[in-house]
Amino acid sequence: MIKLTGVSKHFGSHQALKNIDLEVPAGQKLVVIGPSGSGKSTLIRCMNMLEKPSAGQVIVDGVDLTAHRAPIAKVRQSVAMVFQQFNLYPHKTVLENLTLAPIVVRGVSKDEATETALQYLERVGLSEKKDKYPAQLSGGQQQRVAIARALNMHPKIMLFDEPTSALDPEMIQEVLEVIVGLADSGITMVVVTHEMGFAKEAADRVIFIDEGEILEDGTPIHFFENPQHDRTKLFLSKILR
C-alpha cells in the first residue's frame, strides 16, 4: 500500500532521512518510534508528499508520487493525516470541518457528506458538538474531531504524527481509545507516537528510527523484548522505567 525505496531527505546540509526502504502492506498498523529529531515526522510526511524526498521513490496505492506530474492531490484524497496540532479549520464549525473536503474535493453531495459526518462524530463521541467551533472544544475533543474529519474522507490510509503529544495527560487516553478502535478496521495506519502502551496494544509492526535510519523493524514483542541495537536499548531504558 505504501512503498518507499531509497528515500533520502536533506534540509540544507542536514540529512533527515538516509536511504530508507520501507514497505507497508494494506491493512497493516505500523507504529514509528524514535527520539526527537530522528526523522519520524519527515518520514511520515514523505508518505503524502507534504515533504518532497531529495532522492528515492514513494509509491502509494500503486501511484508513484515522486514521478514528474504525479497526481498527488488525487492520491491525498485517500491518504488522511492527523496532525500533532490538530489543524482543524478554525473558521468552520465541527460539522463543516468534516464535510468541506468531501464536498469540495471529492464532489460528494452535501446530504451524504453530512450523513457520514454525523456517523463519524458519533463514533468519536462528539455528536453534540457538531455546531461548535474548534476553539470551543478541549484539545482532546479537537483531536477526536480531526480524526473524524480524516475518516469522513473514507481513507485507505491514515497517517498520525504524534496525535497525542500536544494534549494534557488526562486527555491522551480518550484520543488513543479512538485510534485503537480504528485499528480493527481494514485501514492501513502509520502512527508516529511516544505512547509505548499504544504500540504494544495496537501495532502489528514497530519500526525504530534514529538519525534518519531504521534501526529496528519487527513485531512489538521483538521491539520491546529483543531489540538488536544498543541505541534502541538506550532509548527504551530511558522511556520505559
Binding site: N48, L50, A73, K74, R76, Q77, V79, A80, M81, F83, Q85, N87, L88, Y89, P90, H91, L100, A101, V104, V105, R106, R149, M153
Partner: peptide
C-alpha cells in the same frame, strides 16, 4: 495564518488554489 492550515488542506486533497480559497484566505480576510 499558520502553515498547518495549508498543510491540513493539502493533505485532504485540496490543490494550492483551493486551499487558499476555502481555508487560508477566509481566515486571513478576517
Amino acid at each position: 495564518i499558520g502553515r498547518g492550515q495549508l498543510e491540513a488542506a493539502l493533505s485532504q486533497g485540496f490543490g494550492y488554489v483551493g486551499a487558499m480559497r476555502y481555508i487560508v484566505v477566509p481566515q486571513a480576510m478576517r
